[in-house]
Design a protein around this nucleic acid. Structure first.
Lengths: 204, 204
DNA sequence: GGCCTTCTTTGACAGTCGTCCAAATTCTTT
DNA sequence: AAAGAATTTGGACGACTGTCAAAGAAGGCC
């Protein structure tokens, strides 16, 4: 029954990693809600149906758990604008769709974006997540660059460099996220308009 | 001896606020070094010549102390580019001087900027410093706007809005600060170049 | 000198934190 | 059903936190 034992093992392993992801997702929720500074393992456990001790069964320590959470963040937002790029037929409509997509992302995933900015900030002090953060940051920059490069193709404009393009839209998004708490609708509307305008101005 | 008593009081008060500022400066140093999440009152006290108990003699509680530290940050960086604006004779030289000034600020005050971004991030979770943070943010936006508006005067270009201008240069600076840890010289050089280029492109 | 106000230290307190572990429980296999 | 492995629990630990109060030191005033 070698293959039976093997499938049992992979099933057990799959179950193990599934629960890992489940707990890491709870950690993500907690981090997004309370911020890194006030997130404790007991707070995370309270967002699950388990007790706090189980976290050390599935993760080596707190850093291991949070690292897993950080890695989950990446998958959620790295391909967000690719559909828009693929569907774009001319530069103005791409710019408009991009602005709308940014605003939608802000509206729907504000908590996750707060978490991301918080963790990215932490990486300046702890250096524990700095590798993961750098990797995600590079992915986001590449994502923005796909939008900008496509817009340049459609508009026959001048290209900025990828880093500048990312920095600019990132600054815009951060500002909108800060304003989102007070005035969600206004923040989304302004972000949409400014992102569209900035894309056309930056590469046109 | 009424006036003697009064001057004594004034001197005592001055001494009191002077020590407050001294302790708040130590808190600032600690926050910049360790980050908000790991800054404790005992860590702050270790950066002074006093013991940890004295902090509660000069400040009501931890929030009071950190609020004082945040307010100190403002005075340090709100008029940083004003001399450049006053001295500018034409648009290209203003843009160049602005880029150089940003790079210099990054090089000389990297720790303070890290602190500022960390505290601004915290304001999204705690709401304790959100008023102070918003006030400083508005001051910084006004500072950037003075640069951009002056450049527009000199170049006869189109004006963006103050919020967008601030967001764009803030994003640029944040990115440079993150890169500064690995490669200080390169980060400063790139920031200088990009800020100069972006200013001319944004308003020209 | 001694007195009184101001300032500083020290130690304690109640909580919370990450971590660990033995016991209890659930699930799987025989 | 019995036995074994895998999973979960909940309490304990030492360390650290913000806060506070009592004791002590320092300095000006009589």
């Amino acid at each position: 029954m070698a293959h039976v034992s093997m499938t049992a093992q992979v099933e057990a392993s799959a179950k193990f990693t599934a629960r890992r992801d489940e707990l890491a997702a709870a950690a993500r929720t907690t981090l997004a809600e309370l911020g890194y500074a006030r997130t404790s393992l007991r707070e995370i456990a309270e967002r699950t149906e388990y007790s706090h001790g189980v976290l050390h069964y599935y993760f080596q320590d707190k850093v291991d758990l949070i690292t897993h959470s950080v890695r989950q963040v990446k998958a959620e937002c790295v391909t967000r604008y690719d559909a828009i790029v693929a569907a774009a037929v001319d530069a103005p409509s791409l710019a408009r769709a991009f602005g709308c997509a940014m605003a939608a992302s802000l509206r729907e995933d504000a908590a996750m974006h707060r978490l991301w900015y918080d963790l990215r900030n932490q990486s300046m002090f702890t250096a524990t997540f700095s590798d993961d953060v750098a990797e995600i940051d590079a992915s986001l920059q590449a994502m923005i660059w796909r939008v900008v490069a496509r817009h340049t193709e459609l508009a026959d404009g001048a290209l900025p460099d990828p880093a500048t393009a990312y920095a600019v839209f990132d600054g815009l998004f951060w500002q909108a996220l800060l304003a989102f708490a007070d005035d969600p609708d206004g923040a989304c509307a302004r972000l949409s308009e400014r992102a569209e305008h900035l894309l056309t101005r930056l590469v046109g």
